[in-house]
Design a protein around this nucleic acid. Structure first.
Length: 810
RNA sequence: GGGCAAGUGGUGGAAUGGCAUACACGACAGACUUAAAAUCUGUUGGCUGUAAGGUCGUGAGGGUUCGACUCCCUCCUUGCCCACCA
C-alpha cells in the first residue's frame, strides 16, 4: 500500500490557497526575505528546467517561512514576445488569447507542483496595467537623454523580419532562428546604458554572493580596456589617423597602419590615387558581406593598399596605410597600428601581403633573437624591449606604461580607456510588445506621449503576417493621432520594445503589483528590496542581469529606490539581487532535453504517476542545484519509495523516546539546517535518509518523528502537511517553526580515533572525548596493535588532531 | 585565442588538508509469499588471501606536507561563456 499522493496533494494545494498561507505581508517588525525565481515565458507547458528552478526557490522560501521570516515569493509571466505571434499565425488565433490560454494552463501546472507563491501578486507583462509603466520608464529615460534615436546599421534578421540587439546575435546568427544576420540602415531607439558603464562595472565588486563566473562574464561584456590613442600624421598633409592600442610597448614595431573599410577617412585618402577604384570595390564587397562571413576564423584576412603613407610619431618612419576586413569600425577607433611580430592577426596579414616586420620585444627564452623572416608566428608574450630607442632593455610591461606616458607628454598620443559595451537597441518591428510611446509631428518633431495619456494600448487587431515592417504601421486608427503639443495630425511610433525591457524591473513591480500611480511603491520597495535570493538559468548571466542592474540604478537616480544596505553590506543601495544562484540544466542521456532531440520528460506525466512531492524530492536529491542534472526514471522511483518508507513510520510510533536516536536526531537537525541554508539540498536529504534508516533500526516516538516531518516539509510539502495533521496538529506546518538542535547532545563521551603510521591508517581506538594529549599519546604507544609497525624503527614525531586522529612518524 | 567550471565505484553523487566512495540507484543473497510484486535484512571499488589482513586506487605527471580527491606547477579531456576587441 502506498500513500495516496493524489488526494493529499490536491487537498493541501486547496488549503494553502484558501487560507492564504503564503500571502506576503509587509511586517516591519520582522526580518524580510524576498525569494525570486526568473519568471517564465508562457509557452503553454512547464518543462523540467522550470520544475528544477522553481523547486529550488520553493524549498528555500518555505525554509525561510519556517525560520520566521516575512517572505515574499511571487510569480508572474514574461508574456510579450515573438513566439506568441508565430503561434498565433500558425493556429489562426490572436497573440493575446493564445498567451492568456498558455498562462492559465501553466498556472495550473505550477499549482500542481505545490509552489508556495503569493498568487495575489501575479503579473503578466502583456497587461496594460504592467506595460504602461514600461512606457512611463521609457519617457523618463527620454527626458533624461537616456533614450535616443539613431539611424544606424543594425543587425537585421531576414527570417524573423526584425532588428536584433548585439546581444541577440550569436556567431553572426539570430539567437532565435539561427539564420545569418544582415546589416541594414534603420532609424532605431537606443537606451544609453553606456552612461552607466563605470557603475555597472565597479559595483560588480560589491556582489559578493554572485557566482564568480557571472561576474566574470559581465566584466567581460562591459569590456573595459586601458590603452593609448596614437596619432599618425599623413605623409602628404596634416590629416591625422588615430589608432587605439593596448600594447604601447610595441609601437616601435609598427610597420603599417590598417583602417576598417567603413572608416570615414578612407574615401578621402584614396581620392585620385591609382588604387581608388579597387579600394571602392573592396569596400562595397565587404559591406554586403554578412557579419558571419566576415568573422569566420578560417577566412583569409583580405585587404588592400590605399596608396597613401603616414608617419610613425615615435621614430618618424614612413609606413603604408592599408584597409582590411579584420579591422572593425565598432571597436576602438576603427584603425590599428600593425605590429606583425607581436600580434598574430597582423603577422598573418603581413606574410600574406609581404609587409615589413620588426622585432621589438625579445623573448627571454630565446638566446638569440630570431630575425622576423624566421618567425612562424607572432610572439605575444613578455620580454625585454629591443629596437625601441631610449626604451631598449626595459621589461615590456614596464615599458608599456612609460611609453604611454612619454607619448602623451610629447603630444604623440593620449592615454584612454575603451569599452566594449554598446548602447542597447530596443526597437522591434513586431506586434506583440509594448508600443514605444512617441509621436512624430511635422511641426514639433519627436514628441513623447504625455503621462496622462498612458498607456498607449496595443490595438487588438493588427495584420501581423511575419512579412516585414512593423505590423502596427498598418493599423490606421493606431497610427493617426493628434500631436500632443500643436494638435496637428501626427503619427505614432509603430515599433515595439524589446522584451528584455519588460523583465528589467518586474522584481520591483512585485513589491506593489497593483499600484496604479507608479511603477512601484517606494515604501514597499524599500521594505522588500533587494531581492535576497534570485534563482535562474546561466543563459541570463549577461543580458537580463545587466539590464536589471542598469534599470535599478536609473531608478535610484530618479530618487525612487534607495535600498537599506543589506546586513552584510555586500549589495549596496542600487543592486537589485543580493544573492544569485544559477541552476544547472536538466539532461536526458547526457543531452539537453529538447523537442528536436525527442528526449523530453513531461513533468505532468511524472506528477500523475508519482506525485509532485516525489518529483521534487528526486530533482533535489539527484544533484546539487548548480550542477547539471541527469534525468533518471529509476531515481524518481527511489524518491517515491522513500516517501512511502517515511509514511510507514507513522503507523508504528513508540511511546518512549530512544536516547541514542535523540542524539542522531540533533546531529541531523544541525546538518540539515546548515545544508539547506547553503543550498546543499542533496546532502540535506541524504542525512534525512540516514535518520530514517536509524528510525527503522531503533524505533521513533512522536517527538522525533514530528521533527523529521518538519525537516522534510520544504522538500515535500504536501506529504509533510498531511503527516503533520495526522500527528494531531491543527495549523499548517508552515506556521510552525524549524527545529533547533541542542549542542549539548552533539557531544559524545567516547570517540573513535584513527591511528596512522607514516600517513597510513593502521587501526582505530576508542577513547574518552576529553582525554588530554599526553595521555592519548601514551595510550596509543602502548597499544599492542602498534607493535608490528614500530619494529626496528624509532618514533620521530606524533601529531594529534583532537577527536580525529593520531599520526605517528617513524 | 581569452575567461570560467568540471574530471571520484557499474550509475547519480559524498568528502575542501585528517578513515576516499556518505546517501541513493542498480546488482547479488536471505526473510516473508503457493508464486510474483511490494516490504524488511544483509553484501557490493580493483587485485591478493580460506580468513584476519595486505596492497593498489579520486584524468596524467611532478611538487608542498607527518598526511593531498582537496593546496601549488605542467599537461590532457569535457562543458559553458566571450572573441579578427587591436
Amino acid at each position: 500500500m502506498s500513500y495516496s499522493f493524489k488526494e493529499i496533494e490536491e487537498k493541501w494545494q486547496c488549503y494553502w490557497q484558501e487560507k492564504q498561507i503564503f500571502k506576503a505581508s509587509h511586517a516591519p517588525e520582522k526580518k524580510k526575505f524576498y525569494c525570486l525565481e526568473m519568471f517564465p515565458y508562457p509557452s503553454g507547458k512547464i518543462h523540467m528546467g522550470h520544475v528544477r528552478n522553481y523547486t529550488i526557490g520553493d524549498v528555500y522560501s518555505r525554509y525561510k517561512w519556517l525560520e520566521g521570516y516575512s517572505v515574499l515569493h511571487p510569480m508572474g509571466f514574461d508574456a510579450f514576445g515573438q513566439p506568441a505571434e508565430n503561434a498565433a499565425i500558425k493556429n489562426n488565433t490572436k497573440p493575446d488569447s493564445w498567451t492568456h490560454k498558455c498562462i492559465d494552463w501553466m498556472k495550473i501546472e505550477l499549482e500542481k507542483m505545490g509552489f508556495s507563491y503569493d498568487w495575489e501578486r501575479e503579473l503578466s507583462t502583456c497587461d496594460s496595467t504592467y506595460y504602461r509603466w514600461n512606457q512611463w520608464i521609457f519617457l523618463k529615460m527620454y527626458e533624461r537623454g537616456l533614450a535616443y534615436q539613431k539611424a544606424s546599421s543594425v543587425n537585421w534578421c531576414p527570417s524573423c523580419q526584425t532588428t536584433l540587439a548585439n546581444e541577440e546575435v550569436i556567431d553572426g546568427e539570430c539567437w532565435r532562428c539561427h539564420n545569418p544576420v544582415q546589416q541594414k540602415e534603420l532609424e532605431q531607439w537606443f537606451l544609453k546604458i553606456t552612461d552607466y558603464k563605470e557603475r555597472l562595472l565597479d559595483d560588480l565588486n560589491r556582489l559578493q554572493h554572485w557566482p564568480e563566473r557571472v561576474i566574470a562574464m559581465q566584466k567581460n561584456w562591459i569590456g573595459k580596456s586601458q590603452g593609448v590613442e596614437i596619432y599618425f600624421r599623413l605623409k602628404e598633409n596634416d590629416t591625422v589617423i588615430t589608432v587605439f592600442t593596448t600594447r604601447a610597448d610595441t609601437i616601435f614595431g609598427a610597420t603599417y597602419v590598417v583602417l576598417a573599410p567603413e572608416h570615414p577617412l578612407v574615401k578621402e585618402l584614396i581620392k585620385g590615387k591609382p588604387q581608388e577604384k579597387d579600394v571602392l570595390d573592396f569596400i562595397d564587397k565587404v559591406s554586403k558581406e554578412s557579419k558571419i562571413a566576415r568573422v569566420k576564423e578560417d577566412v583569409k584576412k583580405e585587404g588592400l593598399f590605399t596608396g597613401t603613407f603616414c608617419v610613425n610619431p615615435v621614430n618618424n618612419e614612413v609606413i603604408p596605410i592599408w584597409i582590411a576586413d579584420y579591422v572593425l569600425m565598432e571597436y576602438g577607433t576603427g584603425a590599428i597600428m600593425a605590429v606583425p611580430t607581436h600580434d598574430q592577426r597582423d603577422f598573418l596579414f603581413a606574410k600574406e601581403h609581404h609587409l615589413p616586420m620588426r622585432i621589438v620585444i625579445k623573448s627571454p627564452s630565446h638566446q638569440v633573437t630570431k630575425s622576423p623572416d624566421e618567425m612562424t608566428g607572432a610572439y605575444a608574450g613578455d620580454g625585454l624591449q629591443v629596437n625601441s630607442g631610449e626604451f631598449n632593455g626595459l621589461p615590456n610591461q614596464e615599458a608599456k606604461t612609460k611609453i604611454a606616458q612619454w607619448m602623451q607628454d610629447k603630444g604623440m598620443g593620449k592615454i584612454v580607456t575603451h569599452w566594449r559595451l554598446r548602447d542597447w537597441l530596443i526597437s522591434r518591428q513586431r506586434y506583440w510588445g509594448t508600443p514605444i510611446p512617441m509621436i512624430y509631428c511635422k511641426a514639433c518633431g519627436v514628441v513623447g506621449v504625455p503621462y496622462k495619456d498612458l498607456p498607449v494600448v496595443l490595438p487588438a487587431d493588427a495584420p501581423f503576417t511575419g512579412e516585414g515592417g512593423s505590423p502596427l504601421g498598418k493599423v490606421e486608427s493606431f497610427v493617426n493621432v493628434a500631436c500632443p503639443q500643436c494638435d496637428a495630425p501626427a503619427r505614432r511610433e509603430t515599433d515595439t520594445m524589446a522584451t528584455f525591457f519588460d523583465s528589467s524591473w518586474y522584481f520591483l513591480r512585485f513589491c506593489s503589483p497593483k499600484d496604479d500611480s507608479a511603477p512601484f511603491n517606494t515604501q514597499e520597495a524599500r521594505y522588500w528590496m533587494p531581492v535576497d535570493q534570485y534563482i535562474g538559468g546561466i543563459e541570463h548571466a549577461i543580458l537580463h542581469l545587466l539590464y536589471s542592474r542598469f534599470f535599478t540604478k536609473f531608478f535610484r537616480d530618479l530618487g525612487m529606490v534607495d535600498f537599506p544596505s543589506a546586513a552584510d553590506n555586500c549589495s549596496g543601495h542600487d543592486e537589485p539581487f543580493r544573492c544569485l544562484l544559477t541552476q544547472g540544466m536538466v539532461l536526458k542521456d547526457g543531452e539537453v532535453m529538447s523537442k528536436s532531440k525527442g528526449n523530453i520528460v513531461d513533468p505532468d506525466s511524472i506528477i500523475q504517476k508519482y506525485g509532485a512531492d516525489s518529483l521534487r524530492l528526486f530533482i533535489l536529491f539527484a544533484a546539487p542545484p548548480e550542477t547539471e542534472l541527469e534525468w533518471d526514471d529509476r531515481g524518481i522511483e527511489g524518491a517515491f519509495k522513500f516517501l512511502n518508507r517515511v509514511w510507514r513510520i507513522q503507523e508504528n510510533l513508540k511511546d518512549t523516546p530512544e536516547p541514542h536516536l535523540i542524539r542522531i536526531l540533533h546531529k541531523t537537525i544541525k546538518k540539515v539546517s546548515d545544508d539547506v541554508a547553503a543550498f546543499k539540498f542533496n546532502t540535506a536529504i541524504a542525512s534525512l535518509m540516514e535518520l530514517v534508516n536509524a528510525i527503522y533500526q531503533l524505533g521513533a516516538d512522536k517527538e522525533v518523528f514530528s521533527k523529521l516531518v518538519l525537516m522534510l516539509s520544504p522538500f515535500m510539502p504536501h506529504f509533510a502537511e498531511e503527516l503533520w495533521q495526522i500527528l494531531g496538529n491543527e495549523e499548517s506546518i508552515f506556521k510552525s517553526q524549524w527545529p533547533l538542535h541542542d549542542p549539548t547532545l552533539l557531544v559524545e563521551a567516547m570517540v573513535t580515533m584513527v591511528v596512522q603510521v607514516n600517513g597510513k591508517v593502521r587501526f582505530k581506538i576508542e577513547v574518552a572525548s576529553d582525554i588530554d594529549e599526553e595521555k592519548l599519546k601514551k595510550r596509543v604507544l602502548s597499544d599492542e596493535k602498534l607493535i608490528p609497525w614500530l619494529q626496528g624503527k624509532q618514533v620521530k614525531n606524533i601529531i594529534v588532531v583532537p577527536s580525529k586522529l593520531v599520526s605517528i612518524v617513524v
